[in-house]
Simulated assay, not measured.
Amino acid sequence: MSKPISYKRHRFPPEIIAHAVWLYLRFPLSLRLVEEMLLERGILVSYETVRRWALKFGPAYTHRLRRKAPSRHDIWHLDEVVITIAGRKYWLWRAVDQDGYVLDEIVQSRRDTKAAKRLLKRLLKKQGCPPRRIITDKLGSYAAARRQVMPEVEHGSHKGLNNRAENSHLPFRRRERARQGFRSAGGLQRFVNVFSAVRNLFVPPHSHRSARATHLHRLNAMAEWKVAANVAA
């Protein structure tokens, strides 16, 4: 793990900072709602301070979180969703595995073969190995990109098969509404990098959804979060 997080020159204790960042990233809350929730606990901090904490410490925390080990037996579900920023359309390309774990996301101004190819190349580099299969919708750019980047990998393209990727957009859409949109493509990219890493940590895999398994998963996730934030007891 990388070097511990430093909280020097911050007047609030690390536990409060880490808790505020967790609230903002984990739940579809606006900054003002996080401010109100902290106030209820006797912590007087402005929403603008919470915003600065999230920008500074969010990437640092998530950089220290463990990633799921890749496997050649994985199935990648790929999809893209349109985001309008300052009147201009962008596409957030996302890849999740068979458990709903977000593998990668990339904001692009195009929705064509070049953009799909860039996503696949990033995935191969990050995962280190190709999947057993990829599943997409009927967008022809995926098939063209797959033939160029990973021709040996099986490809299924049917809207009904790709619910895993389509459902992965829903938490982001809720957060987008709470934030009232994004100001820039770069800001969107920075946010989804952190947001998805936190969601990966706290949301249990689809194969472990019993009440006991979910409870244990969340306890372990919170313990890992505290270690990453350097506030572990």
Rank of each mutant, 00 (worst) to 15 (best):
S2F: 13
S2G: 01
S6R: 14
R11C: 11
R11A: 13
P13V: 09
P14V: 01
E15T: 14
I17F: 07
A18K: 01
Y24C: 05
Y24F: 13
L25F: 14
R26K: 13
R32V: 06
R32H: 06
L33P: 01
E40Y: 05
R41I: 00
R41G: 04
G42A: 00
L44T: 14
E48I: 11
R51W: 15
R51E: 08
R52T: 10
W53L: 07
F57S: 02
P59K: 09
Y61G: 02
R66K: 15
R66T: 15
A69E: 15
S71K: 09
D74L: 02
W76A: 00
L78C: 03
L78M: 04
V81S: 02
V82A: 06
K89P: 08
Y90E: 09
W91Q: 07
W91K: 07
W91D: 05
R94C: 01
A95N: 04
A95P: 05
Q98A: 10
E105D: 08
I106W: 14
Q108P: 04
S109T: 15
R111Q: 10
K114V: 14
K114S: 13
K117S: 13
K121F: 08
K121I: 14
L124K: 04
C129E: 11
P130M: 01
R133G: 01
I134R: 02
I135Y: 03
T136G: 06
D137G: 07
G140Y: 06
Y142N: 03
Y142G: 04
R146V: 13
R147D: 14
P151V: 07
H155Q: 07
N162L: 12
N163H: 10
N167G: 02
H169T: 02
P171G: 03
F172R: 05
F172E: 05
R173V: 12
R173A: 04
R173H: 03
R177G: 00
R179T: 07
F182E: 08
S184I: 03
A185W: 09
A185Q: 09
G186K: 15
L188A: 03
F191G: 07
V192M: 04
F195S: 05
S196E: 11
V198S: 05
P204Q: 13
S210N: 02
T214G: 04
T214E: 10
W225Q: 02
